[in-house]
Design a protein around this nucleic acid. Structure first.
Lengths: 351, 351
DNA sequence: ATAACCGATGACATCGTTGTCATCGGTTTC
DNA sequence: GAAACCGATGACAACGATGTCATCGGTTAT
């Protein structure tokens, strides 16, 4: 009598291997390999027996083992590193990259970095250990020079949304500086002379560029820089909202706000509404968003094209992966659009 | 004299292997393996030489080869299958799962299925070929029974947002039926008797449950079913918007709308605004969203807790992965909250 | 008739790592 | 002083596939 406790709880079925299939079909493993890979020189009758054995055992080749042995060394896997997948901009980029990857039979590892430089390095290292074929990167670290050894080993890298620094890499992004100039000029033309810039951490390329575009506009169009404060370091909607509340209670508050990215716009809109100033203070935001048109007033924005950015970045990434060592690093510009909805057309109060 | 064209364009550096490190450190490969894995019985002097060789060659172990050989057979990789990563609900779930996975040293493959049943099967097969340890799944296919063989081979699966059918699996989700009953009762209590339900494709578990909850409310509280139309098959904001426009122009339009998911709410809000009916027709939506409070009127919603759902699902998934074969399938309920913001409190017009 | 060729096939090495096991000195035990 | 033990180490097989190559039998060319 066997005691109950000695019985295996649930004997986990061993996964079939190519050898099991070969044995069942009465052929060698190499012949099975030929069949699954569509290689020539297999008799149709043999191939059929192999296919039956595969179906019966529900066997499918193990991609790890396959990639390990294969000549090209590719894993058909790419990595995507973004600020956070919950950011609508990053989500659109993510989706576009996923779609292109699917066309190439590749899977995507996505990682959120929360804009922390150390996590960029750690995530790249983790992806390298997994031997991804390429990485689409929203750069955060001060320099991407650390990628050099990996690039030399054949890793493909494309930057998204921001240009790299310390090294030449492909980059697909909007011209943030020109777009910001356009936005701020829009406000100046409507008479604003006291415009505040709300910005993310200034070590981000986008923040730097938007600051430059802001200053371009101020200088070129004759507003007084002293009346145009720059509030950097706003990481999320909450900190943006608090910064705006403080700003509007200051001695000489601005008559217009330019918001350096989507979450900052969210916070600023909330703050103005809470203060009841949404119809007094002009606002232009970077990035379009759901319901920007249905708020009161509608929110004027610089709309980027995140899915186009993602698609172009992925195209470039796979071009690199499929033709290694042939392409020179290149910056690809994706247009932006200024969409007027009301908030950006509010005039300054008459003195 | 060597002709230029015969020179290698850029001799891609070969990636170092454990053998290169062993050779450089003057030890056997197994000793290098001991060092990187923190196994005992290595002299400190030897370990130091190995670490120096690793640093010099910039070698890090290849996870594919490692996972292939290791006894437990785990890849430290999980899959996440959602409708689309651009949906804010899915994005929150995605983020939470990613965070939990990171704690367990696992990477996440995310795939958008666009609610197409065939793509669910294809994506699961692709993940199985990559030997992921587990899958978090928002089920779309009519039945998940096809997972049986993979489960027997030790794949861990947890359903998210929706319960599976045709097979018992863990599921982490809101009680959509009860939440819908609550929402519709909320409208009925305010006097509405002609309430329309706007629904996604009815083969989704959530849509079925929300329909049941809607009918529960109608029947239990004495409204007339004939005046309470159900409009199913609304996949996105656009189709929802068109359906609402058509509905409001019909002979006997409803006085209140209940929207079965976030994108449907977006479309309905847009449609009512376009018709100028946003203050006449009551609306309650499923899922909270950015600016629901700042629209005019504020949008009353059943708020789910997507990040909590994601976190619990991931906890469960890794519990299964780490203690295989020990857990019985279980349904985990995550609470919802009815948030009153105005749109759901509009009374019906007096007759 | 013989050489040359070709399609079909499997044995074996290999990818980069870890599991198993034997070996080698040196120390402890009785 | 021999037996037993133990820490350190590397040779070798194995994980599950594919690349290389030899072999076998049958056709085709001369």
């Amino acid at each position: 009598m066997t005691s109950l406790s000695s019985m295996p709880v649930e004997p986990e079925a061993r996964r079939a291997t190519i050898r099991d299939v070969a044995r069942l079909a009465g052929v060698g493993t190499k012949t099975v390999s030929r069949v699954v890979n569509g290689e020539p020189n297999v008799a149709e009758a043999t191939a059929e027996r192999v296919r039956e054995a595969m179906a019966q055992l529900r066997w499918e080749p193990d991609m790890r083992a396959r990639n390990l042995r294969r000549a090209d060394g590719r894993t058909h896997t790419v990595g995507l590193l973004v600020g956070s997948v919950t950011n609508p901009f990053a989500a659109e980029v993510n989706r576009a990259i996923e779609d292109v990857a699917a066309l190439h039979g590749a899977a995507v590892f996505t990682t959120s970095l929360d804009e922390e430089p150390d996590r960029e390095l750690a995530a790249v290292a983790a992806l390298a250990r997994r031997r991804v074929d390429g990485i689409a990167l929203m750069p955060i670290a001060r320099s991407q020079a650390y990628l050099r050894p990996e690039l030399d080993r054949g890793l493909a890298v494309v930057c998204v949304d921001r240009e790299p620094s310390g090294i030449a890499l492909d980059a697909v992004r909007s011209d943030s500086r020109a777009a910001s100039l356009m936005a701020v000029r829009h406000l100046i033309r409507r008479g604003h002379r006291r415009i505040a810039l709300l910005l993310d951490r200034e070590d981000l390329w986008t923040a730097q560029q938007r600051r430059l575009g802001f200053l371009d506009a101020i200088r070129a169009l004759g507003a007084d820089g002293a009346d145009c404060p720059i509030l950097p370091g706003l990481r999320d909607a909450e900190s943006s909202s608090m910064a705006v509340a403080r700003l509007m209670k200051s001695a000489r508050p601005p008559t217009a706000l330019f918001c350096g990215k989507n979450l900052i716009t969210f916070g600023a809109v909330r703050a103005l509404q809470r203060l009841g100033l949404q119809h007094e203070v002009a606002l232009v935001g970077f990035d379009d968003f759901e319901f920007a048109d249905l708020l009161d007033p509608g929110v004027t924005v610089i709309a980027q094209r995140p899915s186009q950015i993602g698609r172009l970045a992925a195209d470039r990434l796979f071009a690199r992966i499929e033709r290694p060592g042939k392409l020179a690093p290149e910056v690809i510009d994706v247009p932006t659009d200024l969409i007027e909805r009301g908030s950006g057309e509010i005039p300054p109060p008459s003195e």
